[in-house]
Design a protein around this nucleic acid. Sequence first.
DNA 1: AGCCCTCGTATGAACGATAAAATCGTGGCT
DNA 2: AGCCACGATTTTATCGTTCATACGAGGGCT
Lengths: 387, 387
Amino acid sequence: MNDKIVAPSVGEGENVTAGFRDAHPSPAQSVTISDVAEAAGVSRQTVSNVLNAPDRVRAETRERVTRAIADLGYHPNHMARSLRASSPRMIGCRILPVHAETVAAIQDRFLHALAEAGQECGHHVLLFTAADAAAESEWCTVLWRTGAVSGVVLYDITPDDPRPERLTAAGVPFTAFGRTAADTERYSWADVDNAAGTASAVDHLVAAGHRRIGFLGWPEGSSVGDARAHGWLMAMDRHGLLAGSHRLDIRGDDTTTSGTRLMKELLDRPGPPTAVVAATDTLAVGALHTVRDRGLEPGRDVAVVGFDDSPAAAALGLSSVRQPIEEVGRLVMAEVLRLTDRTLGPNGEPPAEPLHRLLAPELVVRASSAPPQGLIPAGVEARSLSR
Amino acid sequence: MNDKIVAPSVGEGENVTAGFRDAHPSPAQSVTISDVAEAAGVSRQTVSNVLNAPDRVRAETRERVTRAIADLGYHPNHMARSLRASSPRMIGCRILPVHAETVAAIQDRFLHALAEAGQECGHHVLLFTAADAAAESEWCTVLWRTGAVSGVVLYDITPDDPRPERLTAAGVPFTAFGRTAADTERYSWADVDNAAGTASAVDHLVAAGHRRIGFLGWPEGSSVGDARAHGWLMAMDRHGLLAGSHRLDIRGDDTTTSGTRLMKELLDRPGPPTAVVAATDTLAVGALHTVRDRGLEPGRDVAVVGFDDSPAAAALGLSSVRQPIEEVGRLVMAEVLRLTDRTLGPNGEPPAEPLHRLLAPELVVRASSAPPQGLIPAGVEARSLSR
DNA sequence: AGCCCTCGTATGAACGATAAAATCGTGGCT
DNA sequence: AGCCACGATTTTATCGTTCATACGAGGGCT
C-alpha cells in the first residue's frame, strides 16, 4: 500500500543486456548502500532518505546520490529491508496438484491475479505445497512464524473447512477466496456469487424465449455446486417456470462423459428442455456432445450455458458464466495486506473488522446460446452481460 | 541441498489449534533466538548450534535448549537467516496469464512440481508477473540483485527467446524449461523430447495394426509444434509408411474447432487415415467430434492420440502423450540450486558447466486408441508405456 | 547578542541470525 | 607438575537496512 513498484527499471533506464562492464558480476548483492554513500560523499542514512523520504534531502544532494545509485547499479537489499521492517512483503499461497479438474481450471488464473495485484503494491506471492488442509495450516503457521510471509491466502474452501479456524487460533493473518458454511463472520473472505451466476444464465435464456430450462449439476454436498443449483432454482421460480411442470434438473460427476449421459437423460424426458444451464464447463462440453449427436445445432435448437469460462468454452463457442477472478485476486490481496498492516500497527490493536464480499460473475454469451439474429462465430465476438 | 524440511511440525508435535494460551498472539516474529537462550540459560550461539550443528553441543545442554525451543514455540527467522547467509532460499518464476491455451494447460502442473521440488530442500517459489519477455528479464534481474531470489526459472521458451541471453549478460543464475534454437550450450535447461512423444504414439498405433496414420499439427514456426511434427514424420519413415503414399498431415490453429475441421479434411481424402496423432489435446478433442459426427467409434474405427494428457483427455478417454512435468520440475529446481550454490561458493569460480537434459514423455493409452481386446472404460484403467 | 527553532546530514543502535575467534575448564601426556 | 590439546560455550563482529537521536549551521525573534 505504501509505495508502488510500477516498473522494475534496472539501472535507471540502462539496458540490462548492456551491463556495466561487469560491474555486477556474480555474487548476489555486491553493491550496498554504504558503497553508494561513499561514492556520493554522504552517509548511509542520506542515501536511505533519498529512497524513502526524498523531501528530507536537499535537491542538490539528492541529485548526487541518485547519480551514484544509477552509476553503481544499486538495488536495496530485500532481505535486510524486510528484517528491519519485520515485514517480508510476501504473501503465501498453496498451489494444489491438478487432481480436482474444476479447481485446477481457475487456479492459475487466480494465482496470476494474486501475483499481479500484489506486485502493484510491492508484494510478492510465495508458493508452497501441502498434502492436505491440515498440512497447509501448519505450513501457513510456520511460514508466518518464521517471518517468511506476512500473511496467507486460502483458496478452494469447503463448507466444513478446518483452515480458517486453525489459522485464527494460530493468529496468522489470512484472507480466503470462498467461505465455509459457518463462522463466516469471524474472518475475511471474498467469494463469487455462484447462485447469481446460474441465475443470470437463466435470465438470459428466458429473455431469449426459453421456458423449459434444465440444469446439470454436481452431486449435493459441495458449497459451490449447491449454490449454483440454488441459483437456477430461484431464478426459475422467480420467472414462474417451476409451477405445474416437473423440474428439469439432474446431478452427476463433473466429467464430460457424465455431462453427455445426463444430457441424454434430460432430452429423453417428456417435455424436454430447450436450454440447459450446466454447473461447469466440463458438464456443458459433455452436453454439447449429446446435442450434436442428435443432429441438433447448439444455440439454434438447444441452448447450453456453462460455468467458469474455461479456455475450452472459448474454443467451442460455449456461453459460460465467467468468475471475476481478477477482481477476487485484487480484493483478497488488498484485504490480507490491510490485515497485516493492522497487525503490525500501533498496539492499540483494534481487531480490524473482517471483509465479507460477494462478487457477481459475468455471463459471456457465445454461439451455444445464440441470440435470435443468428450465430456468432466461435470465439470471435462475445457479448458480455454484467449480471 | 543442505537440510531437508520434511514436515513443518509446529511447536514439536503440539497441535496448532491448541495454541499456548496465546503465547504467540499477533506480531510476526515475537520469540527470538535470544528469548530461547535466556530461557535455557545459555547464549544465543549455543541455541544456533543446537539447530545447525547439534554435534557441537553437549547432549544435556542440547536437551535443555530443545525443550526451551518447544516451550516457547520458537522458529528461526527466515529473513535474518537469509540476510546473514546472503541466500534467500527463494527461486523466482513468472506466472503467465492464461491467454495461450496450450501453455496454460501445463503451467499449474509445472509450478506445482517446482514448488514441491523446492520445498523438499528448503526452498520456496516466488511468483511474479510480467507483460512480456523483456519485462520478465528485468524483473528477474531486479529480484536477483535485490537479493529476493537466489535464482530464477524460465519457462515457455520460444526458439528466438531473448531471456537466456539477457539473464546470462546480467549474471542471474537460471535454468530453463525448454530451450532456444541457438546457443543452447551456454545455459542450463531441461526439456521434453516432443519428437519422441509423437514417435511413441506412432509406434503404439503401428503396433495396433494401423498403417495410414495422420497428423494434426500447429502451423510451422514454433519449436514445440515443429518437434512434434518431426517426431511423427521420422517414426512414419522408420516404419516405411511414407513411401509411395501421400502424407497424411495437416496444420492449423490450436483450437477444437480447428481440430474438427482438419480431421474432416483428412477423412475426406482418398485413402483416409485409420488413426491420427494430434499435436495437442485440444486438436485431438476436435478430431474426436468429427469421428463421432460420422457415426464412427473412436478407438474401434478410428484411433486418436493427443498430447499433454490434460484433464480433458482423461475425462474423454483420449489417449495422450504425457509430459513428465514433475520430473522436469525436480530437475530444473535441482539445477538452479546447484548453480546458485556454485555462484556463492569459493571464489575459484569454476563456471559449473550447464545441464542439458532431454526427457522422454510417456504415452497414456485410453479408449480412443483402444487395444485389440476391446474398450477400456474411460478414465478407469490406463496402461502407460514408458516411451 | 543570545536564544530557539528548523533544516539537512551524520552517528549509533537495532532487526535476528550465524561464522569466526576468544574463553574456560578438563584431561592426557611427558 | 607443567604444558598442550581439546571439547563446550561464550563473545565479537557482521549481513544491509532503517529508526531514533544527535549534531551543526543558519535565520528570525526578542
